[in-house]
Design a protein around this nucleic acid. Structure first.
Lengths: 211, 211
DNA sequence: TAGATTGTTAATCGATTAACAATC
DNA sequence: TAGATTGTTAATCGATTAACAATC
């Protein structure tokens, strides 16, 4: 099926809105209502929903509970993906401790860090020394790795993950990672994201104090 | 000028690569080399660079130092933007303590949190009680706000920021924020981002254990 | 000069929007 | 039936890629 990237970014928004506004739509919701609430195009939402559910009915719209279930099924939120995280600094700990990931099918089994010489805890998650990375990944058949180390260590960690059998990497270090084409890398570059926001802000609200 | 969003996401990548690979390109670099290193299309890179610099010369390519300076100027990395952050939990503290933001023109002046009754420190940054949010923003003429509170508090915080004169919001809470159209909102939805990665991973590497 | 490399103009592609048809 | 709402087919738009021209 054709699962476009924009779609996979919007579906969680729909889902989240539906879940947090159950009182307002006790039984059904139309794609127009959903579109308006999220500030999106009506037809876009309709098309998106058509891709994930067959429950839309003329005149009544979508039954909320069914729609929620269909989106969750489409996004595989029921089926958990195991992951490990490397780099238990502030950001790493924030991610390790974030309870929201469980609801979206992510189960972070453990963290790893060079500054750790024996098992420690970060919240409810264990943090192990780097030396145990590969054996842990192999043992638990982990396919997804999260990198939250400083930029200068990211590439080394990336290679370590790959040789531990990791297939996909969620990279928070603001560097480009070199990796074989058959390894999936997604960069979560906060600095780049922020820059986009700043540029947009300056374009829309020129600062009178600036040249 | 036409500053497309994809462009503002790629420029920091170019910049970062150039800065971290100075030894490999002691004097100049061609767009082909840059494209190959980052796994992007050659023409795409050339076009991007043409938008931000006039320094490209046939046969020699771009002088690295000039290119770096031009990209930085284009992205306004010299001119700092003040910001405040609301929600000094783990993620909030991670962002408050992240030194990389300064290099991209972001200066987080302070954090705010409901759980704080008088000024505290988180790393080198002060954290104030929420009651001081508006006066602080007005006093320092802050235009950018960062939301790192739990989802159920995000909307209230959003309104508080807007009534404090904030023009743009970088939202890390996984909820859609309702705001006037003249307020710029950028969502950094980690769960949605992760979902996109998972979907991609499942499509490329179907898990034999799954149905 | 010849060849590498930039810059530009035209073609393609994918996603969004608009217009319309179908249905409850 | 009439009207609201979905679903689909065609048009538009923006970004990327391909082909070509210019230049050092």
């Amino acid at each position: 099926m054709n699962v476009s990237r924009p779609l996979t970014r919007r579906l969680p928004l729909y889902l989240n809105y539906l879940k947090t506004h159950r009182e307002e739509y006790p039984y059904n919701i139309s794609s127009r209502e959903l579109a308006k609430a999220l500030g999106l195009g009506e037809v876009l939402v309709r098309k998106d929903l058509a891709k994930v559910t067959s429950g839309g009915r003329a005149k009544t719209g979508h039954v909320c509970e069914n729609l929620i279930a269909d989106i969750e099924a489409f996004l595989n939120y029921n089926q958990m993906t195991d992951a490990i995280l490397v780099g238990a600094g502030k950001l790493g700990q924030a991610l390790l401790g974030y309870s929201g990931f469980e609801k979206v099918g992510l189960n972070i089994l453990a963290g790893f860090d060079i500054a750790v010489s024996k098992k420690q805890m970060a919240g409810s998650k264990p943090v192990y020394p780097m030396s145990q990375l590969e054996s842990f990944c192999r043992k638990h058949n982990v396919r997804l790795g999260i990198i939250t180390v400083p930029p200068d260590q990211a590439q080394v960690v990336c290679y370590a993950l790959i040789s531990s059998g990791i297939l996909a990497i969620w990279n928070f270090a603001p560097v480009h990672l070199d990796a074989p084409v058959d390894v999936l890398i997604q960069n979560e570059n906060l600095a780049a994201s922020l820059t986009a926001l700043r540029m947009n802000m300056e374009a829309r609200f020129p600062n009178p104090q600036d040249p």
